[in-house]
């Protein structure tokens, strides 16, 4: 028993270090003054905290514009994914219909195709429909990537809101939609927001589709990737750190919901 516990913590710690170490290293490098970054041997901890690299990164060409685009794409992704995915999740939770299980599995199967496999056909399709290199087109793609997650998570959210509650609201004068809007939606809202934030982060981090489907209208990760081999070291570190921060903050805010969404209660 004790051995199992030790093994469990060992693996957990290993995993945590595996995840955290690169973040810490990038953060430290990003906050190191430029000279120190290139000096040898390099100190592990910088002598002074410097925002020099950061300023350089933020002020370099295309960064602010692509950051703005990233935000717009992410917001649009969240809206599309929730508007389409949440009703699908609700239907999965509430209704019995023919082919329900097939539908559920079909949603999961969409994640089986690596995006790289779809890249060329998608690019062709986007060119044909004139949404290539547009913000909206990219948001569609990100929403499609997030869809399985949104549908399955919202369906499990709505399953947790007893249908009785909606029926009670209906006997008290609500229409079916009214009952949903006044009862199920408010109860599920915090978790829906969490799902939305998760989707936001997903879009914010996504590189591949962005790089393939846009040329001029690139999001931040795609912009950084495409300029990576021509940019100096401090630009890379600052860029990496800049990208990580919002994701970290958001995930930290909603971690409680993420855990409960995946069925693990967080220990207080």
């Amino acid at each position: 028993m004790r051995l199992r516990k030790v093994a469990f913590y060992a693996v957990a710690i290993l995993f945590a270090v595996w995840t955290i170490l690169p973040i810490v290293l990038i953060a430290l490098a990003a906050l190191t003054p430029r000279q120190e970054l290139y000096s040898w041997p390099r100190q592990f901890v910088p002598s002074t905290i410097s925002l020099e690299s950061f300023q350089f990164f933020v002020n370099s060409h295309g960064v602010l514009a692509s950051t703005g685009r990233s935000v717009i794409v992410a917001v649009a992704t969240v809206l599309i994914a929730l508007l389409v995915g949440a009703p699908a999740g609700y239907a999965l939770a509430r209704f019995r219909f023919r082919g329900k299980e097939a539908f559920r599995i079909g949603i999961l199967l969409t994640r089986m195709f690596p995006t790289s496999l779809l890249a060329i056909p998608l690019a062709v399709l986007y060119l044909k429909t004139n949404i290539y290199d547009t913000i909206l087109g990219l948001a569609f793609m990100h929403a499609a990537l997030a869809m399985p997650f949104v549908v399955l998570i919202t369906s499990s959210l709505f399953l947790k809101v007893p249908y009785d509650l909606e029926e009670a609201a209906m006997t008290l004068g609500c229409s079916r939609i009214g009952a949903f809007a006044r009862v199920s939606l408010p109860i599920a809202l915090p978790s829906l927001v969490a799902a939305g934030i998760y989707t936001f982060v997903l879009s914010w981090n996504e590189v591949f589709a962005s790089a393939v489907l846009t040329v001029h209208n690139r999001t931040l990760p795609a912009h950084i990737i495409s300029t990576l081999n021509v940019s100096p070291l401090n630009f890379k570190f600052a860029g990496g750190f800049f990208m990580i921060i919002p994701a970290l903050i958001f995930i930290f805010i909603v971690r409680r919901y993420l855990l409960s969404m995946w069925g693990v209660a967080i220990n207080k």
């Binding site: 509650l165 209906m170 006997t171 609500c174 229409s175």
Partner: peptide, 20 residues
């Protein structure tokens, strides 16, 4: 008619109170 227009009131076995 839908439930809300029938002039009925219902008490559910689970009570179905709105938790929020």
């Amino acid at each position: 008619l839908p439930p809300g227009q029938r002039g009925i009131g219902m008490v559910f076995q689970s009570y179905a109170l709105f938790p929020h």
